[in-house]
């Protein structure tokens, strides 16, 4: 039997490999930023960096939630549609004063939680494939939203909504504070709490989790609720950023959030991943976007470069096949 005489030394050599896997992403991000800084002097300007982060914040919120769902072998395609729906909901109060903002938040979170509950119920209890369940939810929300707005939403919003994007507390943008708060709170839930452990167990082997006294259905449903709530909050912040309500607020966020999470090493096969690494994936994504923008490339070049870098980044640190 191998004696346990040198546990420290052994465990180090093992964790170096895994740590390298994680740092591959950081290295890539730093390299990307160096390239950006060289290619465009604007990149490192505080104004630009703040701008990048402001754009990153709502996506980051969605990715925090998406990570939970992917960890339990799912994925949520309805997040973007939910973001737009929440934005439309915000106008439903026809509020012109800031008193309504807490109400808007409460309503948005309540709606999101309900959507998450339905998604989770479909996946966990009815055994619908997550792809289909959330795709259907995406379409249904879209229909409901359009039906409500008649295709042309009004943009009556409390003036304070803009604060969500541009406001600062102690010089730090509020959206970043919120993202940091969400990431840390949910990061603790995921990586330190008992619920988090159960999430990893269910993602790794649902049947074994059940036999070890975990209720997999409950855990899965909770993950979908967390995901939707994160997306709902992200939707409000994105609304604050774009300023006007449209039926397509957040379009593309469903796939972007999945790409970011997967680039951040969250395995689509479940049971493996880290919220903070997923947020690094977000950083890579937005820096790429900003870089191609700063370089003044036309939109089509942006798309091409973005595609190449996404594949390259993923290959760089080998997101393993699911």
């Amino acid at each position: 039997m191998t004696p346990l005489d040198t546990p420290m030394q052994r465990s180090q050599s093992i964790s170096i490999a895994s740590v390298f896997e994680r740092y591959g992403l950081v290295i890539f991000l730093v390299a990307l930023m160096v390239v950006a800084a060289i290619a465009s002097p604007t990149f490192l300007r505080p104004a630009n960096l703040v701008n990048v982060l402001t754009i990153a914040a709502p996506l980051g919120m969605v990715v925090v939630g998406q990570t939970f769902v992917i960890l339990v072998r799912g994925l949520d395609l309805s997040v973007a549609s939910l973001m737009a729906t929440v934005a439309v909901l915000a106008t439903a109060f026809k509020a012109t004063t800031n008193e309504a903002i807490p109400m808007i938040f409460i309503a948005a979170i309540a709606l999101s939680a309900m959507v998450g509950l339905v998604n989770g119920w479909l996946v966990a209890k009815r055994n619908v494939s997550p792809f289909l369940a959330t795709l259907a939810m995406m379409i249904i929300l879209q229909g409901a939203r359009f039906a409500y707005t008649g295709g042309a939403p009004i943009s009556t919003l409390p003036p304070g909504m803009g604060f969500l994007a541009s406001g600062r507390v102690l010089g730090i943008p509020v959206n970043l504070i919120t993202l940091a708060f969400l990431a840390i709170a949910f990061g603790i839930v995921l990586h330190r709490s008992r619920l988090g452990r159960e999430i990893f167990m269910v993602g790794s082997n649902p049947k074994a989790a059940f036999l070890n006294g975990v209720a997999p259905d409950r855990v899965v449903i909770l993950c979908y609720v967390i995901c939707s709530v994160c997306a709902g909050i992200g939707g409000l912040f994105l609304l604050g950023y774009v300023g006007t309500v449209s039926n397509w607020v957040g379009q593309g966020y469903e796939l972007d959030s999945i790409v970011a999470a997967v680039m951040g090493g969250v395995a689509l096969s479940g049971g493996r991943g880290n919220v903070f690494a997923a947020l690094l994936g977000v950083a890579v994504l937005v820096v790429i976007n900003n870089l191609v923008l700063l370089l003044g490339f036309p939109i089509e070049m942006q798309l091409i470069i973005k595609g190449i870098i996404i594949i390259g980044a993923a290959a760089f640190y080998r997101t393993r096949l699911a």
């Binding site: 709490s193 452990r197 990893f200 082997n205 070890n212 006294g213």
Partner: peptide, 25 residues
Amino acid sequence: LFLGLPISANIVAPDLDAITKRGLI
């Protein structure tokens, strides 16, 4: 087995209560 999880997580799996304090592991 929880194949992707560490040995420690596999050992304590059925008895999370004992290592949980105020909801945290």
